[in-house]
Computed example of a mutant assay.
Amino acid sequence: MTQPLDRYEFESILRFYAESGADEALLDDAPDRFAEAAAALKQRIRPAPAASSAAQSPSPVAQARPQPIRANAGSASLPDETQVLKAREGAASAPTLDALKALLADFDGCNLRTTAKNLVFADGIPGADLMLIGEAPGRDEDLEGLPFVGRSGRLLDRILAAIGIDRQSAYIANVIPWRPPGNRTPTPQETEICRPFIERQIELANPKLIVTLGGPASKVIAGASDGIIRLRGNWQVHRTASGLEIPVMPTLHPAYLLRNPAHKKLAWRDFLAIKARLRAL
């Protein structure tokens, strides 16, 4: 006889599903899999129905199983060069950050929009001297519609406070404004579709200094090819479409620091350099 799960095992399973992105129930009532199995066995034993009858009457198992939710035609597009061009044209046409946010809310050229709960555009104050950019929202950010509000966001807040900067006196965004399902890594195509929007966001926010959090954001914003451990602590440059050059400091992502606390000392050195650079502006 199967032993019931203890509390630890049960919490481990729930944690696994949540971290995999399965954080919502699809049905109000749990399906009875034993009844489904019995129905399936009975269906196999019965003589096969005529083709016309089978086409009209699905099996009890098929009726019991939840059907996948299909988006309306045209509501989701697979990433391709057409969508990249559409993103570039749309981003370039936005005269303000509010207009850019509204444009992103209506943009249907990226498939990530259909699986995310909220658009995660930005937090803080536009026009701040300091802009921080991560790669993509996580679960907490997707729920609240704001970047860096989970555990990594709380660590980022403490780091900023340590150099005398309040979160609301900076401007925070992500390269990708929608959470990838299950927190998976965005594909290169998804990143290219979103690139024009973050580049336009930088241009409109007009920061004096950018901090890229993690390797993926550093590669997009600074055009770097090295890994983040080699790249961090070394000033880079982001060039806007109008030709403006903005200093960029790549550093370790707060989520990485939570997994590797021994490397917090490296990030601290980076933020001390950021503090000194801001004072010199």
Rank of each mutant, 00 (worst) to 15 (best):
I69L: 11
I69Q: 12
R70Y: 12
R70P: 03
R70D: 12
A71R: 14
N72E: 10
N72F: 07
N72C: 10
N72V: 08
A73H: 11
A73W: 11
A73P: 06
A73D: 10
G74Q: 02
G74A: 10
S75C: 07
S75D: 14
S75A: 14
S75H: 09
A76L: 11
A76M: 11
A76W: 04
A76H: 06
A76R: 09
S77F: 02
S77R: 11
L78T: 15
L78P: 04
L78G: 04
P79Y: 00
P79A: 15
D80E: 12
E81D: 13
E81S: 09
E81K: 08
E81A: 14
E81L: 13
E81M: 07
T82L: 13
T82P: 01
T82H: 13
Q83A: 14
Q83D: 05
Q83P: 00
Q83L: 05
Q83T: 12
Q83I: 09
V84F: 03
V84N: 07
V84I: 13
V84D: 07
V84Q: 12
L85I: 09
L85W: 04
L85G: 12
K86M: 10
K86C: 10
K86R: 12
K86D: 09
A87I: 02
A87G: 09
A87T: 02
A87V: 03
A87L: 09
A87C: 09
R88F: 02
R88V: 12
E89C: 09
E89I: 14
G90V: 03
A91F: 00
A91V: 00
A91P: 00
A91R: 00
A92V: 06
A92E: 14
A92P: 08
S93K: 13
S93R: 12
A94G: 06
A94P: 01
A94R: 01
P95M: 05
P95V: 00
P95L: 03
T96P: 08
T96E: 08
T96G: 07
T96R: 05
T96D: 03
D98H: 02
D98C: 01
A99E: 15
A99M: 07
L100D: 03
L100Y: 04
K101N: 07
K101Q: 15
A102M: 05
A102Y: 04
L103D: 05
L103S: 14
L103I: 01
L103P: 03
L103H: 13
L104Q: 11
L104R: 03
L104T: 02
L104V: 07
A105Y: 00
A105N: 05
A105P: 00
D106Q: 13
D106N: 11
D106C: 02
D106W: 00
